[in-house]
């Protein structure tokens, strides 16, 4: 596919300049032209009011009608659902409602039927249970095989994963196997009116830009979704939900890798991701001593203490209390920031 500008009718209005994600359109002497940063993505074509931007790509859209509905991968460990799974169910339910298509969930593991029952209360029309001894611990290969097979048989239009260390390990493997697009660490999802495509919003360049990404020609549309961002699902009035046992077929190659040791280091509870009130500190707090005052305020308010990366680097607070791009994403009702300048990488985490 190639894109070029026929500048005859160009008015130099710069709408194409704004539409270009790559900074590839320049206006000189009142006429737009493409520089060598152009990737022929076509983002400028629709922006032009005078049809000056042309492409040789065929307008014929592939038939995607066989793919429908939203499938949510609900992550569990030792039978306990990851709290982000319910956020995915919430996001999935809203997309399903917007597209008028069904919401289904899938859970994988060994002996996970009770967890599947729990999910069935949150509004899906079906929960697929991939139960197999080979799926007891999360392992990339057997999970990828079992899920890819299910996706190919169910043909959902959208598949959502939590952007956790499991989801971000697993989803790309599946997207490569299916040969479809995958958008990482999304913070916004919506169904585009008219086309029904999934509009996926995500921060890039360390939170310096927010990109909107679509897969217009392939299905399913796959996304990993940042934990802590989506409103969790609430228990639905018990509608008809079918719990379906799928039979995963795993080959010897799937089972090559072994988990030989599991270690939990974080103490339970007191997770800044769940806090309603956060008192955060940065370089300006000056010392570990300074954080005592913040801890006192946080405990008076029934909240948690968090901090910027600088506060972590100085050793004033532990890494799991860092907010930001390389830390955690939080969604409190009140966030008090003390001695924090509010760098994009910090603000990316809220």
């Amino acid at each position: 596919m190639a894109v070029w500008i026929e500048s005859g009718d160009c008015t130099g209005c710069r709408l194409c300049v704004k539409a270009c994600p790559y900074g590839a359109v320049e206006v000189e002497d009142g006429k737009a032209s493409l520089n060598d940063r152009c990737t022929s993505c076509g983002a400028c074509i629709a922006a032009c009011r005078h049809s000056c931007i042309r492409t040789d790509a065929s307008a014929e859209a592939p038939d995607l009608s066989a793919w429908s509905g939203v499938l949510v991968f609900c992550e569990q460990r030792d039978g306990v659902l990851n709290p982000a799974a319910l956020e995915m169910m919430g996001a999935g339910a809203r997309l399903a409602a917007a597209s008028g298509q069904p919401l289904e969930a899938v859970i994988a593991g060994s002996g996970v039927r009770p967890a599947a029952e729990t999910i069935s209360d949150y509004g899906p029309s079906a929960v697929h249970v991939l139960d197999h001894p080979g799926l007891a611990d999360y392992r990339t290969m057997p999970y990828a095989s079992a899920l890819a097979d299910l996706i190919q048989s169910r043909k959902p239009a959208v598949v959502l994963f939590c952007a956790t260390h499991v989801g971000r390990d697993l989803a790309p493997r599946i997207s490569r196997r299916l040969g479809v697009g995958l958008t990482a660490d999304c913070t916004g999802l919506e169904i585009e009116a008219g086309t029904g495509h999934l509009r996926q919003t995500r921060p890039a360049f360390g939170g310096n830009v927010i990109a909107t990404i679509l897969s217009r020609t392939t299905r399913p549309q796959m996304a990993t979704v940042r934990p802590g961002v989506m409103e969790p699902a609430t228990k639905a009035a018990r509608a008809a939900c079918e719990i379906r046992a799928a039979e995963p077929v795993l080959g010897p190659r799937d089972l090559l890798a072994l988990v030989v040791e599991k270690v939990r280091t974080r103490r339970a509870g007191r997770d800044i991701r769940d806090a309603r009130v956060i008192v955060a500190g940065g370089r300006g707090v000056g010392s570990a001593e300074g954080f005592r005052a913040l801890e006192r305020l946080a405990s008076l308010l029934g909240g948690e203490v968090a901090g910027s990366r600088i506060a972590v680097e100085k050793g004033w607070i532990p890494q799991q209390n860092q907010v930001g791009q390389t830390g955690r994403t939080v969604r409190p009702d009140v966030y008090v920031a003390c001695g924090i300048s509010g760098a994009v990488q910090h603000a990316a985490g809220m």
Binding site: M1, A19, P21, T39, S40, C41, G42, A43, G179, V180, G181, L182, T183, R199, P203, A204, G207, N208, V209, I210, A211, T212, I213, L214, S215, R216, T217, T218, G342, V344, A347
Partner: peptide, 20 residues
């Protein structure tokens, strides 16, 4: 390869604005 082999398409990029 390249743009032809890429199912995802960047429709828009914005810089988050914030007032201080």
């Amino acid at each position: 390869t390249g743009i032809r082999g890429s199912p995802t398409w960047v429709a828009k990029t914005e810089t988050p604005s914030k007032a201080r």
